[in-house]
Nucleic acid binder design. Structure first.
Lengths: 122, 122
DNA sequence: CAAACTCCTGAACAGGTGCTCAAATGATAA
DNA sequence: TTATCATTTGAGCACCTGTTCAGGAGTTTG
């Protein structure tokens, strides 16, 4: 594989506005990388990951249901959910004295789904 | 949205081997969730994330090039790369006294790519 | 009202993480 | 060989993280 394959392309092709724009879109600044790391960091804990995959399967679960899916106290689950909620990874809804959590958006679902595929067929 | 939408389906439809098998494939055990968390944890550090996105853009880079993309010492970069290499996230190749690193497989590239999209259009 | 239930908050602490420094390894050049 | 370059390794340490415990807040039930 050519070490500089991507960078050498300009010696064999004329500049192209479309490709240039696409390359600029691909660039990730240190600030963006840090934001992405923050997202991954939140997914990168066994307790939180189990909660998220439980929500991926069930759609929506209350804290007491989620507590049964992991081996920690309900307090630890609550702390974990607060981190995920603050980061916009999950959303919550009150119904009586129970609070139901769900994955916040389709991107999070795709991320969890793709990662599961990576684990099994990577 | 119905809280138990997924679970109630069996009251309105006959069992279906295809759907049952698909549901079983979707289930993530605590052990799998923990493995996935380990993957996310490794992506969840600003230094490592910057290195990975640099590799995503450039294809292949030596340690000295990678050191220029982050604000830490070459030693810290080496420690970070060892973690990623041990986990099978990056692969390395020696050429003279330089060692070139690249992303290990297409799944990692897709994961980084999808996450970048999440950050920008989520 | 009080009791019961679900969930959240703050404090404290053991354990883990990522950094730098100093030293070592492997490879090329003089 | 000796010197130099690129990278790795191990030690030490400041900082961060996730947990439990104790207590509080909001909601329904008797």
């Amino acid at each position: 594989m050519d070490v500089l394959a991507g960078l050498d392309a300009c010696t064999t092709m004329e500049p192209d506005e479309g490709r240039v724009a696409a390359a600029r879109d691909r660039l990730v600044t240190p600030e963006e990388a840090t934001q992405l790391a923050e997202l991954f960091r939140l997914l990168g804990d066994p307790t939180r990951a189990q909660l998220l995959y439980a929500l991926l399967e069930a759609g929506e679960l209350c804290v007491c249901d989620l507590t049964e899916t992991v081996e920690v106290s309900d307090t630890a689950v609550s702390h974990a959910l607060r981190l995920l909620r603050t980061a916009g990874i999950v959303a919550s809804r009150r119904a009586g004295r129970m609070i139901y959590y769900r994955l916040a958006d389709v991107h999070v679902r795709m991320l969890l789904d793709l990662s599961r595929e990576h684990l099994r067929h990577g």
